[in-house]
């Protein structure tokens, strides 16, 4: 036996791979193909399904019936990815550069929400955002907000739920990338007279803030000019006060692999999510996940649901492939650049 293996060394890796890869082929690859086949089905669960290539119309039919949810999913997932980035970057930066001996504790606090159930967390978030909950209740009591103001069931509630639930996915990769940056590079930049970036930071902040605020206002279905203006002002202040040349020239470029990995880790679960939209939204904020879930598990409309799932899968894999080509696959699969 031992002698045979020595003479046929090439079989060893395949023998190690075989059981696990077989599992993935039978229970990932084959089901994906089966789902593609099912998207060409017609019929119902009761009468049985029949395959025909002429059922390609399932695709345009399903797409046109749920284009609103598809677009909403992309917009909500993009908004949530952007918001997680805006929260996670300063958070990860502070932990990595200024955490000192509290680094491990702070990282632990970042992942602590994952130790409770995803569903319970989302339900808990619903209590927090509710009309007279711990945020809106006090603000209404002192008269800052009118009594009819609400967050729950609005687009902002769904996006904030997704942002909350996937924030650690953004924070950890950025932390890893920032933590690896050699401090001496930042010091060297400062020695070479890299100082505060003014007025460039303020102008950049104004423009970026204005665009992001406008886009978010549009996605949340709030007045766009007000959102654009207030975000532009906030962006200008942050850009003026906090953005230095050593940050724009050294720290930020070196942390980009973490930002890319974090965006992917946030955007992918966000675009397929249906729990946040179901618990925190209303029927006009439902996402493509809600449609797929409903068609599969309630209506048993497997052909249309399979077509939608396949479009979602293909779209994401194409996006990831473009991403991977731009960054190199090693970055994505191993998490370090």
């Amino acid at each position: 036996m031992g002698g045979w293996i020595k003479r046929h060394k090439w079989v060893v890796p395949y023998a190690l791979l075989a059981p696990g890869m077989l599992w993935l082929i039978v229970f990932y690859l084959y089901p994906s193909i089966q789902m593609f086949i099912a998207s060409f089905w017609s019929g119902t669960l009761e009468t049985g399904f029949t395959f025909s290539l002429s059922n390609w119309t399932n695709y345009p039919d399903a797409l046109s019936a749920s284009s609103a949810q598809f677009i909403r999913s992309i917009l909500y997932a993009a908004a949530a990815t952007l918001l997680t980035f805006l929260i996670a970057y300063p958070l990860a930066y502070t932990i990595a550069f200024k955490g000192g001996r509290y680094k491990a504790l702070l990282l632990f606090l970042v992942v602590a929400p994952f130790f409770t159930s995803f569903l319970l967390r989302t339900i808990s978030w619903k209590l927090i955002l509710s009309d007279n909950g711990i945020i809106l209740g006090p603000l209404k009591a002192v008269g800052i907000l009118p009594p009819e103001f609400r967050l729950l069931a609005e687009p902002i509630a769904v996006v904030s739920g997704i942002t909350y639930n996937f924030l650690p996915f953004m924070t950890l990769p950025i932390y890893v990338a920032v933590e690896k940056i050699d401090h001496r590079l930042v010091e060297a930049a400062k020695d070479l007279y890299a100082g505060p970036w003014r007025p460039g930071g303020a102008i950049a902040g104004l423009l970026v803030g204005g665009v992001l605020g406008g886009v978010l206002g549009y996605i949340f279905e709030y007045p766009v000019p007000i959102w654009a203006a207030s975000w532009a002002i906030a962006g200008a202040i942050i850009g003026w006060a906090f953005i230095s040349e050593s940050f724009t020239r050294v720290t930020f470029p070196l942390s980009l692999p973490g930002v890319f990995a974090g965006s992917l880790l946030t955007f992918i679960p966000a675009i397929g999510d249906y729990v946040n939209a179901e618990y925190l939204g209303n029927p006009t904020t439902s996402m493509i996940g809600n449609v797929i879930q409903n068609k599969f598990l309630v209506q048993n409309d497997y052909p249309a649901a399979s077509a939608l799932s396949f479009i979602l899968l293909a779209g994401i894999l194409i996006a990831v492939a473009i991403y991977a080509r731009a960054l190199g696959t090693e970055n994505l699969t191993t998490g370090h650049g």
């Binding site: 990932y28 789902m35 679960p269 249906y274 996940g289 797929i292 994401i316």
Partner: peptide
Amino acid sequence: LIFIPMATPEIVLGASLLTM
């Protein structure tokens, strides 16, 4: 084949298994 399942949204993983 290791990486693609991680890049697939959970809902698609569940849905394709259900279809099979």
